[in-house]
Design a protein around this nucleic acid. Structure first.
Lengths: 388, 388
DNA sequence: CTGAAAGCGCTTACAG
DNA sequence: CTGAAAGCGCTTACAG
């Protein structure tokens, strides 16, 4: 019974409708060349038998798989999940299947592209924020299907991306405009094997903005970690353990920015009174934390590149690669503010008294002060005069 | 060239190795029945030609797809992304492909299972937190492949789940143990068409705990929204607009709990001094907000059920359905506390002065107070005596 | 151990 | 408009 339902074949439909299998195929595929009367009978028979074409047979006969693949280095991080949502939507609407591949470390990646993992099983591939090696690019070209990318560009492949470097510069310029000079960057690890293009670009943008403003680049103001709250927290702790302290922090992503807020609050530094923080991405959390950040529409980027990939996959050879650009913009919220005029909170020469001296940790003007939900210990108030 | 690489066929390998295609197939599949010498030649030829079997032909010949499907109502929410990560890992390790399906509203779902979308294209299906209708269950049975579920159970299907009801009761019991009686619940919408089993169970657990403690169930203490920060915020606002106020809030998920924290802080209510809050899931955010919650290991659940699904798919008919249970436990953090002995913060008879009366909003004993990062306006301190 | 042959269920020129 | 036939690239009994 169940079995019978599953295995209904085109031959059976033909038998029931009293026509040849060829006609059934033609009719069902809507290729034309079938009279309306037989078309009707075929439709009826197919429906009654609950017929659906065998993907395997279809693929073997046509060489088309009706399947697209998306390859991502992370599944759970917001950016990737969000993008996946957009892609899945468009692919599904187009009636194609979406194969999900997670690639981890670079060692793992080797096998992905060089081995025939994707070979013969997809009509198109979407690579998300992967910085490809030459062999990898070659292997992908050898697939002989349209390859699309998010976040970076490779000759002959389609892509969509934001201006990471430019947007990073905007974020940093915003801080500069507020009077900050000692602007730290917390970034992804520049030395990790699978260096993602995103991190590279956002780092470059930071430096470009400083350079353009004639602010010297200080290695003591750069720290890195993973693209997570934890990573941002740790990188900030790292910054706070050096003798050169920032008045502002640019984080390469919002998760890291939130980690920075956490670390800052833990030691009693106020944002933005003592330290300004700007993030990147406009993660949903950003709104909650009232974080100034760079906004991008990730879901829409997924939709856009997926639409292109579907086109390219369905009409192979007819669609020329495109290089799409998605907009970003600075969203100014409450974690950035003008540099306090009197130098107090973060002396450039913090020296020994840094963590111990309770005085400089507090600013009398605490309008708009942000306080950690968890880490701030309630303390006695200081009068304004105590600072002067 | 690229083309040549892609289309290498078993026949070519056979030609190069000087054997029949049958032998090549046997050898490559490791079925045995091939001498070591020819085996060697075949391996060499295959490698040199970069041969990989055509999935389409393999599928057509064997009837096996080497593909599993995961069907999820959400892609971007933490729980689902986390689960997906675990599943993908195991499926990939087993050398199978993973097809991703996103199902939205119930209307959309109709077509998913009844139409032959999954038919003939997967060896197994994993349904995530979907409350299936009878027709849907029948359609899935008709697929004639192992069906697995996360979060609920259906006869004949394998499943993994936590004890949602029991865990919810634990959370609420924790509040009861702290002396709370007026315990509100913010939940998913019980009337939404695609009612997920999770929400149903967690609601039931709340009521069961109250009932067991002889605490009457008060409809005024139940509000609902979506399973998001926004939803939790709105549901809490709803609670705060009624004349029956809670001293504690149980949220069906951490996202909602965080929304509750936000709403509470916005109006100046302190957590846990004025209101205790307990969540569910142990979302990464929970740690950041120091939220008391129910912990579950979602990634591991994904791995476990995926492992079973792989087994069942690879050896059809040999694996009997299982019903797995994953553990949970209460993680006590800083958002729950004993009910204040003197009735002050949240009078059961709040009446008109509720939002207007500044006095009762503040508690002199503010050790361990949590303050919103964003919404708390700094105010003049009241002396302890002002309250007595 | 080895090979020839049939068959998996479709599509696609090719004849009628 | 319609049908018979070949072919897509494998696997799998079936003979040798």
């Amino acid at each position: 019974m169940g079995r019978g339902l599953v295995k209904t074949t085109i031959k059976e439909v033909a038998g029931m409708a009293g026509v040849s299998p060829s006609s059934v195929s033609r009719s069902l595929r809507g290729v034309g060349g079938v009279s309306t009367s037989t078309e009707e009978r075929i439709r009826e028979a197919a429906e009654q038998l609950g017929y659906s074409v065998s993907p395997a047979a279809y693929r073997l006969a046509t060489g088309r798989t009706g399947t697209l693949a998306i390859v991502m280095p992370y599944l759970t991080r917001w950016f990737f999940a969000e993008l996946l949502g957009g892609v899945e939507q468009v692919v599904r609407e187009a009636g194609l299947d979406l194969l999900l591949y997670h690639v981890g470390d670079s060692e793992m990646r080797q096998s992905y592209f060089s081995s025939g993992l994707l070979r013969k099983r997809v009509d198109g591939v979407l690579l998300v924020t992967l910085a490809l090696t030459e062999p990898e690019v070659d292997a992908l070209r050898g697939l002989d299907v349209p390859v699309c990318m998010v976040g970076s560009r490779v000759d002959g492949f389609s892509s969509i991306r934001i201006d990471d470097a430019g947007s990073a510069s905007t974020a940093v310029q915003h801080l500069i405009n507020l009077g900050h000079q000692r602007i730290a960057m917390i970034s992804g690890d520049p030395n990790e094997p699978e260096h993602f293009t995103t991190e590279l670009q956002r780092r470059a943008g930071y430096r470009a903005a400083l350079k353009a403003a004639d602010i010297p680049i200080d290695p003591l103001l750069e720290a890195h970690g993973t693209f997570t709250i934890e990573g941002g927290d740790e990188a900030t702790v790292e910054l706070l353990s050096r003798r050169s302290l920032p008045t502002a922090i640019y984080a390469e992503c919002d998760e890291m920015a939130v980690g920075a807020l956490r670390a800052l609050r833990r030691v009693g530094l106020r944002v933005p009174a003592d330290v300004s923080v700007v993030g990147f991405d406009d993660h949903p959390m950003a709104q909650y934390f009232d974080l100034t950040t760079i906004r991008q529409d990730v879901h829409d980027q997924g939709r856009q590149i997926a639409r292109h990939m579907v086109d390219a996959a369905v009409r192979p050879g007819e669609v020329t690669p495109v290089s799409l650009h998605a907009p970003t913009r600075l969203v100014m919220r409450a974690t950035t503010a003008v540099l306090a005029t009197e130098p107090r909170a973060v002396p450039a020469h913090a020296g020994s008294g840094y963590a111990g001296d309770d005085n400089w940790l507090f600013d009398p003007t605490d309008a708009g002060q942000l306080v950690s939900p968890v880490y701030t210990k309630r303390k006695e108030r200081h009068s304004s005069e105590a600072h002067n």
